[in-house]
């Protein structure tokens, strides 16, 4: 849930990057961190294993310009993608304002995408959220690899809702900021509705 602070005139929102293991969630955050002005970002925290797999979450605080006199802040989180970290994933979804699903476009990861997508829907439902109502964006990552599933097919499997979708190559930044802007816009639009 977003946090409106009239005292400091700030609004903070939480965005979670979800997806199967090694799909590029952390890489998305690393690119955003690398390309954001120092005054607009806080420290990026990664709770990872010795082999750089996300153990609990990555966290990146961003602050954007003011809107109606309120400073807007976005807290970006990733979940650990590996199947057996499900208990941790549920915790990170608490209080979420917007979700990005990062899909791994490689043919051999299609099943992992579907499993993670189902897992997202289930875990959101456990927290009382309906995926169809949460600000939600899909990113088809790793489009530069040779063995990728056509976007049409990915769309049929992961985006029947017809939410905003972006093709991406996270290490070089293709589609990364488009994805972030799209989800941030949806979150702010939702805030207007509930306000």
């Amino acid at each position: 849930m977003s946090f409106i602070n009239y005292s400091s005139r700030e609004i903070s929102c939480k965005i979670v990057y979800y997806g199967p293991g090694l799909c590029g969630k952390t890489t998305n955050l690393q690119y955003i961190y690398a390309k954001t002005n120092p005054e607009a970002k806080g420290k990026m925290i990664s709770l990872a294993t010795e082999t750089d797999r996300t153990l609990f979450f990555d966290f990146l605080p961003l602050s954007l310009a003011e809107i109606r006199g309120f400073k807007t802040r976005f807290h970006l989180y990733t979940v650990p993608g590996q199947v057996f970290y499900d208990a941790s994933r549920k915790l990170i979804l608490k209080g979420v304002d917007g979700v990005v699903f990062v899909a791994d476009s490689q043919i051999e990861r299609m099943e992992a995408n579907l499993e993670s997508f189902d897992n997202l829907r289930t875990n959101l439902a456990e927290q009382g959220y309906d995926l169809a109502k949460v600000p939600f964006v899909v990113q088809y990552n790793k489009r530069d690899l040779p063995n990728v599933v056509p976007v049409d097919e990915l769309r049929r499997a992961l985006n029947i809702q017809g939410v905003p979708e972006y093709q991406a190559v996270a290490p070089t930044g293709v589609g990364v900021f488009d994805t972030l802007k799209a989800v941030a816009k949806l979150v702010l639009t939702e805030l207007r509705k509930t306000g």
Binding site: M1, S2, F3, I4, N5, Y6, S7, S8, Q127, Y129
Partner: peptide
């Protein structure tokens, strides 16, 4: 789901 968190000057 939690209610929206809001902070006002007085309470702050």
């Amino acid at each position: 789901m939690n209610a929206q968190m809001v902070m006002y000057e007085d309470e702050f």
